[in-house]
């Protein structure tokens, strides 16, 4: 089971500069554990306190995972996962 994961610039230090890596897992949570096994440190940049970090967006086949179950979102072979940090800020 292969799932392509697109990695944003800021996290490519964990993937030896690769823009995309391949992972496995039946859910987003399992996929992230699999990524962590091959790219140690990446999980902490995606998850905080058992949930997706507030300012990290993950999309499965073009859909924001927050709308399809978050970490429990189901994945299948050939799915494409995209990770994008939020573009956000503010004066306070």
């Amino acid at each position: 089971m292969a799932i392509e994961v697109r990695i944003p610039t800021i996290l490519r230090t964990y993937t030896a500069g690769e823009k995309a890596v391949t992972g496995e897992g039946a859910s987003l949570s399992a996929l992230i554990d699999d990524l962590e096994a091959n790219h140690p440190g990446i999980k902490d940049r995606l998850i905080e306190g058992g949930d997706l970090r507030r300012f990290v967006n993950v999309y499965v086949n073009d859909e924001d995972v927050r709308f399809i179950g978050g970490l429990e979102a189901e994945l299948s072979d050939g799915d494409q996962v995209v990770v994008l940090p939020a573009v956000a800020g503010g004066s306070r």
Binding site: D62, R66, V82, L84, A86, V87, A88, G89, S91, R92
Partner: peptide, 14 residues
Amino acid sequence: GSPTFYEFDSTDLF
């Protein structure tokens, strides 16, 4: 939509 915060909509960002 705030005077003190901004964030791109997640779908627009994608």
